[in-house]
Write a protein that binds this DNA or RNA. Structure first.
Length: 300
DNA sequence: CTAGGATCCTGTCAGC
DNA sequence: TGCTGACAGGATCCTA
């Protein structure tokens, strides 16, 4: 369960109100592989801005430096104001002084930090930012701001769904004609920010079976697909992504923000909200995949 | 070039 | 209770 575009966007917004213009006074790397680059250069730097490119978060610092953060599957970023050892309590939601947590929802959103999963911590005078990551696939990488486009992940990244037409997507689908459509839209070089949740949601919206060969889609389907990705992501950002607020609102221990917008993801066994058929969970391109077998028939 | 599968790593959960 | 295998909101690397 991990961060896709809407979650990273939510984190960007949540952190911005807390660390913009603040100075990093200390950095602690607890897991070597989680931080790439010269740690010492980060100390004393000031946060000048924050951006998101696909699922990558960019924290722009002074002296031509940028922290590029990718949460991958289980990364999370948690900000705790100074003196606040635990996460927010009910009633504190939305308050800047309550702190912020986003990414893979776990009990660390609420518990004492640093924890067993804390890989890197950035200390500010006003509080601490913890980068936690159970599986260690994510990372923080220090790069030069002026050389951001040399970064291979960013250089190859496709356009955001809002910057892409159905026509442009269709063109890319033709080059990957033999692959299942789900695998193609999960490719960040085709379109930026779509992960397992939004791939399933977009395909359901467009009425396309995930195993359909990409080359079988027509312009109308391609347009519906990109539109579905936009709508699902917009709804998710509106709901606040997998932030601490929604996580806590559930029952204090479990995150369930998906309930606010998901039509198929993790709804296997439940009724399709469009036709009433039972949602199924299948496997496509090695990923757990959720479909309505009635609304999404494979085009042979 | 594309397609498909293995791989990185830790934790949880279902089934025996 | 203890063990085993499958699986997990990602992306890259390797092989055919």
């Amino acid at each position: 369960m991990m961060p896709e575009l809407p979650e990273v966007e939510t984190i960007k917004r949540g952190l911005k109100t807390r660390i913009l213009n603040k100075k990093i006074i200390q950095v602690e790397v607890r897991e070597q592989k989680s931080f790439v680059g010269e740690v010492d250069k980060v100390v004393g730097r000031k946060v000048l801005g924050m951006e998101r490119k696909g699922k990558a978060l960019l924290i722009k610092l002074d002296q031509d430096l940028t922290l590029m953060i990718h949460l991958r599957m289980t990364g999370q970023l948690i900000y705790r104001p100074k003196g606040k050892e635990y996460g927010l309590e009910i009633g504190e939601i939305g308050k800047v002084e309550a702190g912020f947590a986003g990414g893979h929802p776990t009990a660390d959103f609420l518990g004492s930090l640093p924890s067993k999963q804390t890989r890197v911590s950035l200390e500010f005078e006003e509080g601490s930012l913890f980068f936690n990551d159970q599986r260690k696939f994510g990372f923080i990488k220090l790069i030069k701001t002026s050389e951001i486009l040399n970064e291979s992940f960013l250089r190859k990244l496709g356009p955001e769904p809002w910057q892409m037409s159905g026509q442009e997507l269709l063109f890319k689908l033709k080059r990957r004609a033999g692959s299942p459509i789900k695998g193609v839209i999960l490719d960040q070089q085709v379109v930026a920010g779509i992960g397992n949740i939004y791939a399933d949601e977009a395909l359901f919206y467009a009425g396309i079976h995930p195993a359909t060969k990409a080359g079988k889609l027509n312009l109308n389907e391609s347009e519906k697909l990109i539109e579905g990705a936009r709508k699902a992501m917009e709804a998710s950002i509106e709901a606040g992504g997998s932030t601490m607020a929604t996580y806590v609102r559930a029952d204090g221990t479990k995150g369930d923000y998906l309930e606010q917008f998901a039509q198929v993801f993790q709804r296997q066994g439940q009724k399709c909200l469009r036709c009433g058929a039972e949602i199924q969970k299948i496997r496509v391109v090695g990923r757990g995949t959720h479909i309505c077998p009635s609304c999404q028939k494979e085009k042979k």
